[in-house]
């Protein structure tokens, strides 16, 4: 059974981050982050979204996955932090 969720978060003093998710049988099927933030290299976001496919749709676990991805890649984000992206994804999963 497919469930969808979405959330948005305006980072105080930063940018807007949105997440849309699809969950099938308790696993993440699709993730899309959008917003007016800046990220270098920009390819990292799509890679993160792809890596999240198949993980358990557990907000805490997903949060960890996002933070550890950005930390490992050293992605430069302007207008938000890895924790902000993790927070939005966790909210979206809770709404699914």
């Amino acid at each position: 059974m497919k469930r969808v969720g979405k959330a948005e978060f305006k980072v105080p003093g930063g940018k807007l981050i949105r997440a849309r998710v699809e969950v099938v049988n308790g696993k993440v099927k699709f993730v899309r982050f959008t917003g007016d933030f800046f990220m270098t290299p920009e390819e990292d976001l799509e890679e993160l979204e792809n890596r999240l496919i198949g993980i358990e749709a557990n907000p805490d676990g997903a949060r960890e996955a996002v933070i550890s991805y950005f930390k490992a890649k050293g992605t430069s984000i302007v207008g938000g932090t890895p924790e902000d992206f993790a927070h939005v994804l966790a909210m979206a999963l809770r709404s699914a």
């Binding site: 949105r18 899309r32 982050f33 959008t34 917003g35 007016d36 933030f37 990220m39 920009e42 976001l45």
Partner: peptide, 9 residues
């Protein structure tokens, strides 16, 4: 629109 934005949104 910015690179990370969605037209629909």
């Amino acid at each position: 629109i910015g690179f990370f934005q969605s037209v629909e949104e």
